[in-house]
């Protein structure tokens, strides 16, 4: 139900390895569905230092606003500028075109601490 090539957090975010020490992250399909129509996404600036668990942006829907939390520790190397004009892409393609931030990890080993697909599915089922 949740892509097996991704890692997850209990804050309903996904993390994808896109290079040796580089990841992209976004919010899960469960999160976008719970938020409803997403109308505004605020992301950290390129160059910003992120620490796991810190609020680093906002996702606002017609119904509510939620903080985006850094799922990893590292430096922002890119962000999905397309979401400025078309935030609804997050609803349509949460794991693909709806990616949010690219991060160069301080320590690649930290990914091992994240949930795998099965563990995230269990977390969703229990929440």
């Amino acid at each position: 139900m949740y892509p097996e090539d991704l890692k997850y957090t209990t804050d309903h975010e996904w993390v994808r390895s896109v290079g040796e020490a580089t990841v992209r992250f976004g919010i899960t399909d469960y999160a976008q569905d719970a938020l409803g129509d997403i109308v505004y996404v605020s992301l950290p600036d390129v160059g910003a230092a992120l620490a796991t668990g810190d609020p680093c942006g906002e996702v606002e829907s017609t119904k509510s606003v939620s903080d985006l939390y850094a799922p990893v520790t590292g430096t922002v190397t890119g962000r999905n500028e397309a979401l400025g004009a078309t935030p609804e892409v997050v609803n349509a393609d949460a794991y693909g075109e709806g990616w949010m931030v690219e991060v160069e990890l301080t320590d690649p080993a930290q990914l091992e601490a994240l949930l795998d697909s099965a563990a995230y599915a269990a977390h969703v089922a229990s929440s």
Binding site: G36, D37, V39, S61, T62, K63, E88
Partner: peptide, 11 residues
């Protein structure tokens, strides 16, 4: 209901 299945506020 805040919104209906297959709907959503925008639709």
């Amino acid at each position: 209901p805040i919104e209906y299945p297959d709907g959503g506020v925008l639709k």
